[in-house]
Simulated assay, not measured.
Amino acid sequence: MNIDKMEFLNWMDRIMRRFDLLDENLNNIGKQKSNIDGEELLDNQDLLLMLKISPRSLQRYRSQGKLPYYTISGKVYYKLSDVHQFVKDSLAVRRFG
């Protein structure tokens, strides 16, 4: 199968425009944060990286009621304000405990 140079360039241009659209859509999806009551939600992975703790420690904080959480469609989320309060409470216990 032979195609001329102009036809090939037109095809490549169409393909590149598709890639640009896909890239834009992926960027928009990535920018969307989960929210509840207008507040940002974090998932387990976010907290593990943020707090530099193990999955077991995170589970223990949930089980002990130290860190409030929400389950949405089988996935666990945490309100950012609850995480901030958890950190403040943890620091207060270490300082005065």
Rank of each mutant, 00 (worst) to 15 (best):
S63M: 07
K31G: 15
R94S: 10
R18N: 07
Q64N: 10
Y61K: 05
G65L: 03
V83M: 02
N44R: 15
I3C: 04
R60V: 03
M50V: 05
P68Y: 05
T71Q: 14
R14Y: 09
L26P: 02
D89Q: 09
K33I: 15
S81W: 02
G38W: 15
L41N: 14
Q59Y: 05
R56K: 11
S90N: 01
L51H: 02
L51N: 12
D89V: 07
Q45H: 14
S81G: 11
E39P: 15
M6I: 11
M6T: 01
K75R: 03
M12F: 07
L51P: 04
V83I: 04
K5R: 03
K5N: 04
D46I: 10
P68S: 06
D89T: 10
D46F: 12
L51R: 04
L22V: 12
G38M: 12
M6D: 14
D46A: 14
D89I: 02
I15Y: 11
Q85W: 11
L49N: 12
S81H: 07
R17I: 05
D82W: 07
L48V: 10
N28D: 14
D13G: 07
N25W: 04
R94A: 12
R95E: 01
L42Y: 10
N10P: 00
K75G: 00
M6Y: 08
N25V: 08
R56C: 03
L91G: 01
R95I: 06
E7Y: 01
G30Q: 14
R14M: 13
D82H: 13
K75I: 04
D46Q: 12
L80E: 12
L80S: 13
W11R: 09
L80G: 02
N25H: 11
K79S: 08
A92R: 14
S90H: 05
F96G: 09
S81I: 06
K88M: 14
R14T: 11
W11E: 10
Y77P: 03
L58C: 02
Q85E: 15
N10C: 03
F8L: 13
L41G: 06
Q45V: 13
M12Y: 06
D13C: 11
A92V: 13
M50D: 06
Q85N: 15
Y69C: 03
S63V: 02
N35I: 14
N10S: 05
N27T: 10
R60I: 09
P68C: 09
Q59A: 09
V83F: 05
F86N: 01
L42N: 06
Q45Y: 13
D37N: 15
H84A: 12
L67G: 06
V93I: 12
R95L: 04
N25T: 09
M12E: 04
K52W: 06
L26S: 13
Q45L: 13
N27R: 12
S34K: 10
L42I: 01
N27L: 12
K66A: 11
N2W: 07
Y70E: 00
N10Y: 07
L58V: 04
N44M: 14
H84F: 13
L58H: 00
F8H: 08
L9C: 04
